[in-house]
């Protein structure tokens, strides 16, 4: 770690865990609530294979606040009742962070996501990779995600994705 600020590190870890908790609870408004209330708030999910070859296309490309809000609508309204649901468990580990300016930080973390389809009950790995995050710190010191790129080592998904990774 570049920083020795343990309270900052604890706050970043709390943000990571809050996002994992929201996703594993299928709490899409809660997921949205982890993002900064700014037009530029963004979530991307794409394979590291695409990134390494300069290809920007993703599995999910929510590059503005409106698209994040639409992602909630996809899951909660548009797709409701059409898919085999599955549980997820996100395991997240902070690997580095640094301060960019007074209100902005960058952090990296590893993730692995297990999934358990409700019908089969068999648990398997859905994806592994790393989160590349930009974090906004407000005047009160509260941290929110300004942008997150879930970069998947898993270039071939074992299943369609309903929820963000």
């Amino acid at each position: 770690m570049m920083q020795t600020d343990t309270s900052l590190e604890a706050a970043l870890n709390a943000l990571l865990l809050a996002d994992a908790h929201a996703l594993d609870s299928k709490d899409m408004p809660g997921w949205l609530g982890n993002y900064a209330d700014e037009e530029a708030a963004a979530y991307y999910c794409r394979s590291a294979e695409n990134s390494e070859h300069g290809l920007a296309l993703g599995f999910m490309y929510d590059d503005c606040r409106a698209r994040l809000e639409d992602r909630v609508t996809f899951v909660n309204d548009i797709w409701a009742g059409t898919f085999q649901d599955y549980r997820t468990r996100h395991f997240v580990q902070l690997t580095s962070f640094n301060r960019v300016d007074a209100t902005t930080l960058e952090m990296r973390s590893n993730f692995s996501v297990f999934m358990t389809p409700k019908d089969s009950g068999i648990t398997q790995v859905l994806a592994a990779g790393q989160y590349l995050d930009t974090v906004r710190q407000d005047k009160n010191g509260e941290l929110k995600l300004l942008s997150r790129r879930a970069e998947l080592d898993t270039s071939v998904l074992p299943r369609y994705l309903v929820y963000p990774i």
Binding site: Y61, F83, V162
Partner: peptide, 21 residues
């Protein structure tokens, strides 16, 4: 095209995720 392609079709696309299921 990049923004539309990423979110419209495929295994997580707005109009196609249900196909996958």
């Amino acid at each position: 095209r990049l923004r539309q392609s990423s979110n419209l079709l495929g295994p997580c696309g707005l109009i196609s995720m249900e196909d996958a299921s």
